[in-house]
Simulated assay, not measured.
Amino acid sequence: MKVTNLLSVLATAASASALSINLMSGLNDQSPMISPATVPTIPGGSPITYCVEANYNPKNDLVDIERISIDPNPPVVGKSLHLEVSGDVKQRIEEGAVLAVEVKLGVIRLIKKDFDFCDLLSQANVTVSCPIEPGHLEVIKDQDLPAQIPPGKFVVSAHLYTTGKKELVTCLHTEITFGRK
């Protein structure tokens, strides 16, 4: 399996989601933590949700997610994945924004790495590039999923930060289980 291919798919999904999704929840916000039972769903039926962690509340994000949809849902190994994301960006996203991604296969951490969000966008073959100005944004992305993805439960978290990791922009989470053919 090429972990970089899987990471590319998941990071693209997370980054595209993140950029059109939600920006900036303050790390020192006094809002209550969201519990797993009360995590707001993201319209569109995709397996991408908001994170459930201390000091994060998606209501404080600076971008409103309207919808995230994927097809096929759930994703299928060896097939093309179609992603559509729409939302309203409330604050400009500058060069130097950081996407911190962690990918686990079960309990085994495959990747924990910070990426330059704007570089990811430029490599993702989407019509969005940095700086991203406030306003409505739609991202559509097709990505082939490698046939070498092993069976198992993949858990991905993606934290988008402003330049220099000064403030958390949004936090997204997904869990996808790939079976054997």
Rank of each mutant, 00 (worst) to 15 (best):
M1P: 10
K2W: 08
K2H: 08
V3M: 13
T4H: 13
N5H: 13
N5K: 13
L6P: 06
V9W: 04
A11V: 05
A14G: 15
S15Y: 02
S15D: 15
S17W: 04
S17M: 06
A18Y: 03
L19K: 01
L19Q: 10
S20H: 01
S20Y: 02
S20A: 12
I21M: 14
N22K: 11
L23F: 00
M24P: 06
G26I: 09
G26F: 14
G26P: 11
G26S: 15
L27F: 14
L27I: 14
D29A: 15
P32W: 11
P32Y: 08
V39N: 15
V39S: 15
V39C: 09
P40T: 03
T41E: 12
I42E: 07
T49W: 01
Y50T: 10
C51G: 11
A54D: 13
A54Q: 14
N55M: 09
P58A: 02
K59W: 10
K59S: 12
K59G: 12
K59H: 12
D61F: 00
L62G: 15
L62V: 07
L62F: 09
D64V: 13
I65N: 03
I65V: 13
E66G: 04
E66M: 10
I68N: 03
I70A: 05
D71H: 07
D71G: 04
D71T: 12
P72S: 07
P72Q: 08
P72W: 07
P72M: 00
P74Y: 05
P74G: 06
G78K: 11
K79R: 14
K79M: 04
K79I: 03
S80R: 14
L81M: 10
L81I: 03
L83K: 08
V85Y: 02
V85K: 00
G87F: 01
G87N: 03
V89Y: 02
K90G: 13
Q91D: 05
Q91P: 01
E95I: 06
E95S: 12
V98C: 00
L99G: 07
A100G: 05
A100I: 06
E102L: 06
E102Q: 13
V103S: 01
V103T: 03
G106T: 02
G106V: 04
G106E: 09
V107A: 09
I108K: 14
I108Y: 12
I108R: 08
R109W: 02
L110A: 11
L110D: 00
I111G: 00
K112F: 08
K113G: 05
F115G: 04
D119S: 11
L121V: 04
S122H: 07
S122C: 04
A124K: 05
N125Y: 03
N125R: 05
N125A: 13
C130N: 08
I132K: 01
I132R: 03
L137W: 03
L137Q: 07
E138D: 10
E138W: 01
V139G: 01
K141H: 03
D142Q: 11
Q143K: 02
Q143P: 00
L145P: 02
P150Y: 02
P150C: 01
P151W: 06
V155C: 02
V156M: 02
H159M: 10
T162H: 03
T163F: 12
K165P: 12
K166F: 05
K166A: 08
E167Y: 14
E167R: 15
T170W: 00
C171H: 07
L172P: 05
H173V: 09
T174Y: 00
E175L: 06
E175V: 09
T177C: 07
F178Y: 07
F178T: 04
F178M: 03
G179P: 05
R180I: 11
R180W: 09
